[in-house]
Design a protein around this nucleic acid. Structure first.
Lengths: 155, 155
DNA sequence: GCGAATAGTGCAGTACCTTCACGATATGGA
DNA sequence: TCCATATCGTGAAGGTACTGCACTATTCGC
């Protein structure tokens, strides 16, 4: 029963979640809410249905997340310039700064983790992790397509 | 803005979660519940507070998860042989078989992912991923210790 | 114009998790 | 032996993250 690369990756996956939860403990921010802020930082002001697409969740869920973020002062709902049904959700100054800090932390963590790997292993590591990510993505997407086909057939 | 190893690892982390959710869609099983079954499969029949320790969650939460698993026929609450306050939670035959299938799937996924990596990169990959996992664990634990110290000081 | 699609939300419901309080039982001394 | 104390599990209450359906307001295509 040896520890495989897969097990290590799962362990890393758990540690990431824990680290993120720790980082925002004691604030109104949570994983789901930070993801909204993160997307807004990268895409700029967005309509809620665009956020739903980017986050791969339902528009209804975005409403709730934006409600919470708005109440806590992290985002604003501005009127959409051309569509009166929609809002433009945008970061407040506080949230922009927080996201910038997060970007820096992300870069620092990236560097710190890479520094733990001997120089001579880094290229192979980079290739290997990329290959695994691609393969895993392919497998998951194929699996989801197969499930969708089954649902289609039984409908 | 290049894609770092860290970004790849985060992507892998998301894909794992998605894969697990897909695998149990349409059943009463969820990530949290499967984790309970997984622990039981590895530790054998356990008292609920032991499950809470193993899952790093509260005993109260375990009560709810075991309630759901018991209602769905995946576990049984047997009397504890020496402690009348406690139960021994144990897998039913159905759940044992499911966990065995899961173990096989796990091994197959492990093999499939490793097969995506060229033979010549595997050793370096293994070392690199292990080094990153260890470093990340160290960082997270140090961070948690620092937070605990702050809480202690302000109390 | 007018019917159909779209943007967002109220309402209802599920799951996961927390904290606090409590009853039942176990345990380690005096 | 008896009692204080700790432990095991759960009721109650509450917060967050989701889902689906129904509905309003608006936009868009013909």
């Amino acid at each position: 029963m040896d520890v495989t690369v897969l097990d290590r990756l799962l362990q890393i996956s758990e540690l990431f979640q824990r680290d993120l939860a720790n980082a925002f403990a004691g604030t109104p921010l949570t994983t789901a809410r930070v993801r909204v802020l993160w997307v807004l930082a990268h895409r700029g002001p967005s309509a809620q249905h665009d956020l739903a697409d980017a986050l791969e969740t339902s528009p209804r869920n975005v409403t709730g997340l934006v409600d919470a973020l708005e109440a806590a002062g992290y985002v604003r709902r501005a009127p959409h310039p051309t569509d009166r049904r929609a809002y433009l959700v945008e970061l407040t100054a506080v949230a922009s700064e927080q996201m910038e800090r997060m970007r820096v932390d992300h870069a620092e963590l990236s560097a710190a983790l890479l520094a733990a790997v001997p120089e001579s292993d880094r290229d192979a590591l980079e290739r290997g992790v990329a290959a695994i990510a691609d393969r895993l993505e392919t497998l998951v997407l194929a699996d989801e397509a197969a499930r969708a086909a089954v649902r289609e057939a039984s409908a």
